[in-house]
């Protein structure tokens, strides 16, 4: 059985520790991931900006990379959402690729989906004695339907005190190229999100999408706030090691 890692470009080049934590967690359950090097980016930055031809080029690297995989796992709801929700539209005119896209779609899982639904694991036996708040990212929840899975996992972490985040489902303002194209608007949105995070007085902000966390962490750091921002895979791995 071939279980492959879809690293996502962001966790490849900026946050490799996130993908590594995911690899190590799955390794504890005897799942050895394979890493096809053909993969680059899912194409979302171009797709969402309307540049579909450009998006297709990078999407093709993903389709090719996981052609022979039985399961594909990624530490991002957004990139998996791109495959599930947008690839069929992007390749709707290309019959052969569309067939491959449909196959890719059904074998690709976001990390918490894979743990909870495929492996049936919610309790990793982790301990993490901190006050934690969780930001549900928009694409994970709305494009992919990942809503309860992260909470299920967090609720089993010993010592972890989960504090509700005000207006949690409001977007953090990242939105890919939106963050630079509509910089002031995006800035106002992330400012408010950071305010809500700080109101929780949590020590740790956790999420399942590094793009959103990069945005919020960047804001918190900009304000000189010392709150730790982590991917759920990192938190869980730290909790079991």
């Amino acid at each position: 059985m071939k279980v492959s890692l879809f690293v996502t470009c962001l966790c490849d080049v900026i946050y490799p520790q996130v993908s590594e934590a995911m690899v190590r967690i799955l390794h504890r359950y005897g799942i050895k991931l394979d890493f096809p090097k053909l993969q680059t980016c899912c194409g979302q930055p171009a797709f969402n900006s309307g540049y579909w031809e450009e998006a297709k080029e990078s999407a093709k690297t993903i389709i090719a990379a996981f052609k022979d995989s039985d399961f594909v796992i990624a530490p991002s709801g957004s990139c998996v959402g791109m495959i599930h929700h947008h690839y069929p539209t992007l390749f709707k005119e290309e019959r052969e690729l569309l067939q491959q896209v449909n196959e890719l779609k059904e074998k690709t899982y976001e990390f918490t989906q894979f743990l909870v639904h495929v492996l049936g694991i919610t309790d990793l036996g982790a301990t993490f004695r901190h006050r934690v708040t969780y930001h549900p990212s928009c694409h994970a929840t709305r494009l992919l339907g990942v809503t309860n899975e992260p909470y299920q996992l967090l609720s089993k972490v010993k010592g972890c005190q989960l504090i509700p985040l005000k207006n949690a489902s409001d977007c953090c303002g990242f939105g890919g190229t939106f963050a630079v194209k509509m910089s002031d608007l995006s800035g106002a949105m992330v400012k408010e999100k950071a305010e809500h995070v700080l109101e929780t007085e949590a020590e740790v902000l956790v999420g399942i999408d590094m793009a959103c966390l990069m945005n919020i962490a960047g804001r918190l750091s900009h304000e000189g706030k010392n709150i730790r921002v982590m991917h759920l895979a990192e938190l869980l791995y730290e909790g079991v090691s």
Binding site: V13, P16, K181, A217, G218, H222
Partner: peptide, 24 residues
């Protein structure tokens, strides 16, 4: 456009793909 409102992260010293062989 980014840094007016937030700090930007740096690229990792070694990307995941660069550390993969060692990790594997």
């Amino acid at each position: 456009k980014w840094t007016a409102y937030r700090d930007a992260p740096v690229l990792a010293k070694r990307s995941f793909r660069e550390s993969w062989d060692r990790l594997e």
